[in-house]
Computed example of a mutant assay.
Amino acid sequence: MTETIYDALRESHEIQRSLCRRLLRSQAGTAARADLFKQLRVELAAHEAAEERYLYVPMLMDDMGLDASRHALHEHHELDELVEALQVVDKSGAAWMATAKKLSEKVHHHLREEEKKFFQVSGKIIPDARKIGLARSYRRDHARLLKKLAEG
């Protein structure tokens, strides 16, 4: 079976879920925690940018997709703000972990909502053949962004 945009997005969603779980179990003040946070930060940023381009833009072009797209973009902004708040030198305090838990909860909520709601709405808007092309474009852009963001 040919991969669609939804298959590609779900793969990144699973990576995000795993990184969130591992980050919350990480030990305070360790290089492992800092590395997990960086991996999560990079994955979220690459995923958001590519997803916005290859799922939300096509949805925004149809009246039926406006509300869902706007809501999802708002949630991406909220995730970005939490990631920014976590980008401090000391990742060992209770306040940092409380914010990390909030980020994890928001990531999990957003991914569930996408998979249960946004995918269904966009599935009615985007033609089947286009879903395959969008998967290729998403994967290419996501890989490029992962590399670029990991270096920076």
Rank of each mutant, 00 (worst) to 15 (best):
L86H: 08
L86A: 04
L86F: 10
Q87K: 02
Q87S: 13
Q87R: 07
V88F: 06
V88R: 06
V89N: 08
V89R: 11
V89F: 08
V89P: 01
D90T: 00
D90I: 00
K91G: 08
K91L: 08
K91T: 01
K91D: 07
S92Y: 07
S92L: 07
S92M: 12
G93N: 12
G93R: 09
A95M: 14
W96P: 02
W96Q: 03
W96H: 05
W96M: 01
W96Y: 12
M97D: 02
A98R: 10
A98H: 09
T99W: 03
T99V: 09
T99C: 09
T99P: 02
T99F: 04
A100M: 03
A100L: 03
A100R: 02
A100T: 08
K101A: 05
K101E: 13
K101I: 02
K101M: 07
K102R: 15
L103W: 03
L103H: 06
S104Q: 11
S104P: 03
E105P: 03
E105M: 13
E105C: 11
E105V: 15
K106F: 06
K106S: 04
K106L: 10
V107H: 07
V107K: 06
H109I: 14
L111K: 05
L111T: 13
R112M: 12
R112W: 10
R112S: 12
E113M: 06
E113Q: 09
E113D: 10
E113N: 11
E114F: 13
E114V: 14
E115T: 03
E115D: 05
E115L: 01
E115I: 00
K116V: 15
K117P: 10
K117S: 15
K117L: 15
K117R: 15
F118S: 09
F118N: 04
F119T: 05
F119P: 02
F119Q: 07
F119G: 04
F119R: 07
Q120K: 09
Q120W: 11
Q120C: 07
Q120Y: 06
V121F: 04
V121N: 01
V121I: 14
V121A: 02
S122I: 06
S122M: 07
S122D: 08
G123N: 09
G123T: 10
K124M: 12
I125H: 00
I125C: 01
I125T: 01
I125P: 00
I126T: 02
P127M: 12
P127C: 12
P127T: 05
P127K: 13
D128C: 14
D128M: 15
D128H: 15
D128G: 14
A129M: 10
R130L: 12
R130D: 10
K131P: 02
K131H: 11
K131I: 00
I132H: 05
I132E: 06
I132K: 09
I132L: 10
I132Q: 08
G133L: 05
G133W: 01
G133M: 08
G133D: 04
G133H: 03
G133Q: 05
L134P: 00
L134C: 02
A135E: 01
S137M: 13
Y138G: 00
Y138E: 01
R139P: 00
R139N: 10
R140V: 04
R140T: 06
D141L: 00
D141W: 00
H142T: 04
H142D: 03
H142W: 04
H142Q: 05
H142M: 04
A143M: 11
A143Y: 07
